[in-house]
Amino acid sequence: MPSTIELKQETEVKVESIPAHVPIVKIDKLNVYSKGTHILKDVSTVIPKNKITVLLGPSGCGKTTLLKCLNRLTDLYPDLKINGSIKIDGEDIFDAGRDITTIRQKMGLLLQRPYPLPMSIYDNIAYGLKLKGIRKKKIVNAKVEKHLKEVALWDEVKDRLKTSAQRLSIGQQQRLCLARGLAVEPEIILADEPSSALDPISSKVIDEEFLRLKSDYTIILVTHSLRQAKRLGDNIIFMYYGEIVESGPAEQVFENPQSKILQEYLRVGH
């Protein structure tokens, strides 16, 4: 009980100070260690709802690790030691009692390269639905169609839904992976350099999807491409060697960088 009241108060305060920037994720003093290396150092930040938040920074600065902490894929790596807290909708995901599968279903994940599940196009989307207990054929059919349309893939695949997803082009596969993530109706989309393996046209399609999807979803996008960050980002978090160096609304961060390292990154990136 007390926690909901606390959350309510917090939310109200935020709404008052910065309207329309309702936080959906709150990260507090997150530290990640792997065999003696300190990968994330005291990371604290807030991710606003219905915005595209870009995690920007050079390779190996901890962006992907931070992303994987959010849906606890870090559980797969027993070498990682994690402390601190991540609250999503006010609930700490590291609480021992939390059911990890429901936490993960709040987030759709898009990786650097598409990894379609070894099944048909249709089943790739139906898989997540079945895990949620949705088995009625009519509902599943409708949802498959809806989400394939959502990523502009429906027209290209509607005649071969039962064929293997591996046969799609890589750009189509990536859109399928996005659709499969959307099908479980997440609140957040986690995207780890989703267009780095794609040709310019497919990657533009993905970018446009993100701009369209942000009215319904919160998007957290990892990238080291300045151009993509500028094109898509509402909110920028710039990381360097496991620390958040600078963060804030995109215009502010790009127009008026405070730290030397970000100034350098912006200059070289051009």
Binding site: L76, Q105, L111, L117, R180, G181
Partner: peptide, 25 residues
């Protein structure tokens, strides 16, 4: 690939479901 497992888990599958439906397939 590990990422295939990550993809399945992130859709809300348990580890066993991931092994049964994805890895074995």
């Amino acid at each position: 690939p590990v990422e295939l497992g990550e993809a399945s888990l992130s859709l809300g599958a348990t580890k066993w479901e991931t092994i049964k439906h994805i890895f074995i397939r």
